[in-house]
Design a protein around this nucleic acid. Sequence first.
DNA 1: GTTGCGATGTATCGGGCCGATACATCGGAG
DNA 2: CTCCGATGTATCGGCCCGATACATCGCAAC
Lengths: 216, 216
Amino acid sequence: MLELAILGLLQETPMHGYELRKELVTKLGTFRAAISYGTLYPTLKRLQTAGWITESESDPTMIPPMTSKRGRVVYKITADGKERFAELLAQAGPETYDDAGFGVHFAFFSRTDRATRLRILEGRRRRIEERREGLRDVLSRAAGRLDAYTLELQRHGLDACEREVRWLEELITNERSGRAPAGSAGTIDIPVAELPQEPATGDAPPEPPRPHLDRP
Amino acid sequence: MLELAILGLLQETPMHGYELRKELVTKLGTFRAAISYGTLYPTLKRLQTAGWITESESDPTMIPPMTSKRGRVVYKITADGKERFAELLAQAGPETYDDAGFGVHFAFFSRTDRATRLRILEGRRRRIEERREGLRDVLSRAAGRLDAYTLELQRHGLDACEREVRWLEELITNERSGRAPAGSAGTIDIPVAELPQEPATGDAPPEPPRPHLDRP
DNA sequence: GTTGCGATGTATCGGGCCGATACATCGGAG
DNA sequence: CTCCGATGTATCGGCCCGATACATCGCAAC
């Protein structure tokens, strides 16, 4: 999970740990609270051992407008790492559909082919629908067994589920009709040379037309 | 966290692991996915070592209509355990306000005094408001830096935050005016003898009048 | 000037929790 | 009679978190 996120961010540009964490927070905001350094550094070490990334001392190719004055340990993705990233992006297991996993995958949707995007969106919907059915069961069957507060909690959970299903449905419809989400912005403003643009599983490249999505 | 949940459920009635897990799932549904046995059993062992609960072989005082035919290891809360539960219920640290922690505390609100309920509700609101502000920052400041999908993810997260804040606000208002939540049901239908009704921190007992809460 | 503080930056440790896995038993359907 | 699904207890490896400990830089206050 974190592996995918790190590989994805390092594919945009090399970074050191601190920057990485900040990017992780802003990009995966809601679904993944903070990402502790106690997770980040061991993971970086793991990725290094596996050969997906390399470590280099404060390289001078740093973009000047970046806040970091003098990087200590800069991490950079390797060719193998890019392969690994593509592999992780395309595959969708059960962990792809839980809150954290879905969030990470979704955050990289602009680099995922449409078929995979649809597969993930539908898998996530299925998952949430199951949760929703469970809550409906509790609310109808066990209504008398539970106190008012517990019921209110379930109701709130049910509400959130229904809302997410509707959101997913909208996204799925848009995908099918070949539109990107609401987006006021386009792709990422990084040197294209960084991205070899390997066609993941042979599909049209992401970021199609993109009109708008009716949201109140 | 799990400690509080287990103690709370065992205060209602003695149970064995399997039952405990099922109750855990239905009562804490949304906020806490499944609770693996790989978590449950070690925790039970820990609680036992600490002296909060005791283990007894298949006791005959089992309620017949219960699904379990023949309990193997039945766990029962001790007097110390009840004290511990009250202590955990009343105290509110930072972990009380994350998703899991809040869910567990909320699920036991009918056994929490009003002052504590308000404290927790407000703490949670504060937490979500911070998350919301973070998302607003990202959406306004970093709008051009992120791709359409990432933006959509943030928007959805922001939406969920705003909704939860409104929900909390409603609950807080209700608490202040001495009402329970929407609830169509009252308290739990367990023998009152099980609950010594110790006044946690000296406050009026929960479950006041309870009219309704206007939800669409 | 120097002192001290907040942001930047790297790293480890203990512990909670999860998913996978392995068993064993019981009631009932085929 | 046999197999299957629900019930039931338990462990293991591994991810991830919070707390903690350092060290350095730029800057503002005194």
